[in-house]
Write a protein that binds this DNA or RNA. Structure first.
Length: 464
RNA sequence: GGCUGAGUGGCAGAGUGGUUAUGCAGCGGAUUGCAAAUCCGUUUAUGCCGGUUCGAUUCCGACCUCAGCCUCCA
């Protein structure tokens, strides 16, 4: 029985999809005016793990993640780069696709772009105006916050606590709390025809319109980072509640913030974001994913390069166990049950991860002993790692890959043939009792990032 | 100031009203020609003060501290 914390109701709820086994989930993606940072990865990895687990649990998931390709930031960035907004968007989308693919994320079933859904947004705005929840004003259209008695229910905030200051639009609003659904065209900015003249959509309306278009008026889960809870999600709810008859998203899930280990949130405004592609250059993608799985998705999480390097060492441990186990084997149901029990408890990936490590220890304990048991455990470990897209590489290949460990960088100075030749030479020296020579060779290899592992069956090697 | 969440061992980070999270690091032992890997063991861990309870890290209250949000943010 899957239970999910609904951040709208504030409690754990037993999950029951609208139309099982189908399941619709909408996640707020990024505004494509810059490269992805690690904070995006945190949220996206969380939802990747969640979607993968839901599929593993038998649901037919329709995973929609939007792309915001028109807003103030887009326009400002395009202006600064002196490139058209659409070109900037496509450039950043290509980079995002590359980064997220490298990270090993499953592609969403749909990635709707705001600029591709202008008609749907205009349609919803017209409905809101007809229902007297919105009004045109000087080429803009505003949502009337006080027309929605439930406004503030998501962020648990009273209207009195909101003190917006926006001198630009203040005069055109009837109430300072109102927010823009449509913004009148300004010179040099992208604009579309609308019943209110040329202009462009406000930020929040795109998610209301696109989620309805792709998932319907009512759907199962809406997710995003906590920093979107207010105002973005609050406004989305207001728009959809007032503009559509459906109940909109039934469960809201918010991922916690990622903070640099110096204590500050990684934030675009603070300029301390860590670019995802840089992280992926320094560490194996699986290590980054495994690291991000280490904390519950709702908890704030600290990040540093050293912590990811730690996760990489943990990943080597998992692959080391897989390598040690005999092939074959069948998945052990009781271990899968353990895994499911913790994942069913609001997707506790931290506990799920500890199941993986526990399996690794069991494998290592059995190795050399009960081969059948070790094979079964390894099959289980690979099966459960696979739920997250992890541990699917050949262990030997993974461990021999440069930089799979500490992330200390690309050290490819020796090819495999060189390494094998030196190992053969060392084996000869050892058999003759020339340990000084043997150790010299080992030190030489170590200096180039190659670690030797002697055993009764011979000498293995891997890169550190 | 308001709202939300959090304070766990050297670091990161889960769970739990009484019993091992897990990972990384350290230390000791086993193993090894020596290592590495691995296994076993190990280091006064639950912010502070009260309360409820046979018993609280876990529940309740106050306090302190921190983080996020309060119309740029995953």
């Amino acid at each position: 029985m899957l239970r999910i914390f609904n951040s709208h109701s504030g409690v754990l709820e037993t999950f029951a999809p609208l139309d099982p086994p189908k399941l619709g989930i909408y996640v707020c993606g990024i505004t494509v005016y810059d490269r992805c940072h690690l904070g995006h990865a945190r949220s996206f990895v969380a939802f990747d793990a969640i979607v993968r687990y839901l599929r593993f649990s038998g649901y037919q998931v329709n995973y929609v993640r939007n792309i915001t390709d028109i807003d103030d930031k887009m326009i400002a960035a395009a202006l600064q780069n002196t490139e058209p907004v659409a070109e900037l968007a496509q450039r950043m989308i290509d980079l995002m696709d590359r980064d997220l693919h490298r990270l090993g994320l499953a592609a969403p079933d749909a990635e709707p772009r705001a600029t591709g859904h202008i008609a749907q947004m205009i349609d919803m705005i017209e409905r809101l105006i007809a229902a007297a929840h919105a009004y045109p004003s000087g080429g803009d259209v505003y949502f009337s916050v006080r027309s929605d008695p439930e406004y503030g229910s998501l962020s648990r905030r009273g209207l009195d606590a909101m003190q917006p200051e926006d001198p630009d639009t203040e005069r055109r609003k009837r109430d300072p709390l109102d927010f823009a659904l449509w913004k009148a065209e300004k010179p040099g900015e992208p604009a579309w025809d609308s019943p209110w003249g040329r202009g462009r959509p406000g930020w929040h309306i795109e998610c209301s319109a696109m989620s309805e278009h792709h998932l319907g008026e009512s759907f199962d889960i809406h997710g995003g980072g906590v920093d979107l809870k207010f105002p973005h999600h609050e406004n989305e709810i207001a728009q959809s509640r007032c503009g559509s008859p459906g109940e909109f998203a039934r469960i809201w899930m918010h991922t916690g913030p990622l903070q640099a280990s110096d204590g500050e949130k990684m934030s675009k405004s603070l300029g301390n974001q860590t670019v995802l592609s840089d992280v992926l250059d320094a560490h194996p993608a699986e290590a980054v994913y495994l690291f991000l799985l280490g904390a519950h998705y709702r908890s704030p999480m600290e990040y540093s390069d050293a912590l990811i390097a730690e996760a990489a060492r943990g990943l080597r441990r998992l692959y080391g166990a897989l390598r040690a186990a005999p092939p074959g084997g069948s998945v052990i149901d009781s271990e899968v049950e353990r895994f499911r029990t913790v994942m069913d408890d609001d997707f506790n990936t931290a506990e799920a991860r500890s199941v993986l490590f526990d399996l690794a220890r069991q494998i290592n304990r059995e190795s050399g002993g009960a081969a059948r048991r070790a094979a079964d455990l390894a099959a289980t470990l690979r099966h459960l790692g696979g739920v997250f897209g992890l541990l699917q590489a050949d262990p030997e290949d993974f461990l021999r890959r440069s930089g799979s460990g500490s992330g200390s960088g690309a050290r490819e100075s020796l090819n495999e043939a060189d390494i094998e030749a030196l190992i053969a030479e060392r084996t000869g020296a050892r058999s003759e009792g020339d340990f000084a020579r043997a150790d010299a060779i080992r030190d030489q290899l170590a200096a180039q990032g190659v670690v030797l592992l002697d055993s009764a069956e011979g000498t293995r090697w891997e890169r550190s």
